[in-house]
Design a protein around this nucleic acid. Sequence first.
DNA 1: AATCTATTTAGCATATTAGCTAAATAATAT
DNA 2: ATATTATTTAGCTAATATGCTAAATAGATT
Lengths: 120, 120
Amino acid sequence: MLDTKQKIKIFKALGNETRFLIFKNIFTGGYACSIDETKPKDDIIAQATCVTTIAEHFDFALPTISRHLKELRDADIIKMTKKSNKIYIEPNPKIIKELSVCFTTLVDNYKASSFQFDNR
Amino acid sequence: MLDTKQKIKIFKALGNETRFLIFKNIFTGGYACSIDETKPKDDIIAQATCVTTIAEHFDFALPTISRHLKELRDADIIKMTKKSNKIYIEPNPKIIKELSVCFTTLVDNYKASSFQFDNR
DNA sequence: AATCTATTTAGCATATTAGCTAAATAATAT
DNA sequence: ATATTATTTAGCTAATATGCTAAATAGATT
């Protein structure tokens, strides 16, 4: 389970427009930088994107995007894997799923506790 | 459904430690400022908390807490209702639920799309 | 070894955020 | 009318965040 500090880090990371859009694009598979048909289908890297490719879709300088990616990685929202001189980037669905579960739990608990009081 | 701007606002609101803790306390029903047994059970106000009560639980000045609450309200995370000279505060479970659904959808879509490629 | 490609780090300027105290507003109670 | 209670607004300072360019690093290619 995610602890409070981790959750705050995730929210902070997603609370910036640029980072949110980067995250969204990575997650919805906006663009791949290296679809390599010769590689086996279970090779994640072959379908992944990389820093430069992401930066091409934004009006910000490359180092700016690089720093944003670092923050998303520090919040454990994305995974970055170095292979040769490129860094391949994938979403981390596990964290996002955990966050969704934690929200659901919160709402369910709230509904349960207010039911006790006022039957809503 | 929540649009991108609203989502970013919510994340920004929850990406600050103080606001996150305020939110958490409001949501988990940490403290009520006016449990009034004489009022009907379905009167939300009777079980709610207010600005001063929340501020008492933090080491920050009242105006600081007031501003944080305003931000949580602007993000639609909480509801604030003025009644006489107090402002009663409740969580808005609807928004949190929507956020949880939107994360779940994201993860499900991601899993579905990667299944196409590499059978994960 | 020199060059090219991909990325990060350093250093800087500006904008935003988060805290404070003091003062203002709004409603209630005396 | 005055005082009390609850809250917000204004104005300030300090810290943090976000952008930039230039330089550094790491690996691949010539």
